[in-house]
């Protein structure tokens, strides 16, 4: 059975000048043991999608529609209490800013022990023993001693490891990591990504990685969903997307990224800026920035259409894009 199935997810927030449509019909699925990267720029709706799946959006004010199924069970219609139980025990979460996600006035040991005692009903001694195992699992040296430290006593990379230890404490089936390495230095980022990949290999959980970094996606993802203006504009395996994107936005992103392993004379720059989700353009939301725009694009919103080899693209001209980009 599919681990997570999201269908036609919609999230809107009331704004002073009308609704802000942050997510406009997102459908995706994650299988156990696989990594789905959701790639997008700021305002693309990638984090709101993740928050809706995790059940941490306040509704109201947010209005959430569509369907989120974990192991086939619908989550969006569950009563609050049950929903929190599922989110807490079956879905683990890792955020960008560990300093904001951890409680600054309790030791990290206390925070891990607390989770195990409340959710698993463990005794203090057992919870303590398990907390040491978890902190060792995320490769923090002198685990037993460091449990007595407060979050501010850890470096950025170490705090991120603590958050991962907390996220996997209840052995979730699905882990959602929202920009987990964005605030870290590149050498530390490599350590944390390696750790996440290793934990996933060992536990067989599904992983959703939310990121704006094409390099990180290429290094760790199995499948990729590219988001733009609250929609998935392209979906496929990581090899398919990088070898020959089927949407002009993905094509532009790949061409606009400088690379460390070679030097290009001139970068391609996508003109303009991502649209304001409160004022989306008519037709295809990417059309004002698209080099392949036609009259059809200005009027008709292209649906996410299935392509051969189990991939999908939301572009009227996807065949043309594929012909141009396939290497």
């Amino acid at each position: 059975m599919t681990l997570l199935e999201v269908a036609d997810l919609r999230v809107a927030f009331p704004g002073p000048t009308g609704d802000v449509n942050a997510v406009n019909g997102v459908s995706l699925h994650v299988e156990a043991g696989r990594t789905l990267a959701i790639l997008g720029e700021s305002g693309s709706g990638k984090s709101v999608t993740a928050q809706a799946v995790m059940g941490i959006l306040d509704a109201p004010p947010a209005r959430i529609g569509g369907s989120v199924r974990l192991h086939g069970r619908e989550l969006l219609t569950l009563p609050r209490k049950q929903r929190d139980r599922v989110s807490g025990e079956e879905i683990g979460m890792v955020f960008q800013d560990a300093m904001a996600a951890l409680n600054p006035v309790f030791t990290v040991g206390h925070q891990i022990v607390e989770v195990l005692r409340v959710r698993r009903g463990m005794s203090r001694v057992d919870a303590r023993r398990r907390a040491v195992e978890l902190v060792e699992r995320v490769r923090i040296p002198a685990a037993r001693d460091r449990l007595r430290d407060y979050p501010h006593q850890f470096s950025g990379g170490m705090r991120q490891r603590i958050m991962i230890a907390l996220a996997i404490a209840l052995e979730p089936d699905l882990l959602i990591a929202d920009e987990p390495t964005t605030a870290l230095d590149v050498t530390v980022q490599a350590q944390v990504m390696e750790l996440l990949a290793e934990i996933q290999r060992d536990s067989g959980m599904g992983l959703i990685l939310i990121t704006h970094d094409l390099g990180v996606v290429a290094e760790v993802a199995d499948d990729v969903a590219v988001m733009y203006a609250g929609r998935i504009v392209e979906r496929g395996t990581v090899e398919q997307i990088f070898a020959g994107p089927a949407h002009p936005y993905t094509e532009g992103l790949l061409a606009s990224m400088p690379r460390v392993d070679r030097r290009d004379e001139q970068l391609y720059a996508i003109p303009g800026a991502p649209p304001n989700p409160a004022r989306l353009p008519a037709g295809c939301p990417f059309h004002p920035r698209c080099p392949r725009v036609t009259d059809e694009c200005r009027v008709t919103l292209p649906p996410l259409a299935a392509l051969p080899a189990d991939r999908a693209s939301a572009c009227h001209h996807h065949e043309e894009v594929l012909r141009a980009t396939r290497r």
Binding site: S155, G156, G157, M158, D185, V186, T187, V188, Q189, A190, Q191, M193, E194, D213, L214, G215, V216, V217, A218, E219, A221, V238, E239, F242, A243, L254, M257, R259, V260, D261
Partner: peptide, 27 residues
Amino acid sequence: SALLSAVPVPDPAGRSGRQRILLAGDP
């Protein structure tokens, strides 16, 4: 050398063959 090897490269085709120097700890 370690810094350069830690930078993710946007090319999934070569990811299994890349050699990465993982530095221990923080500065």
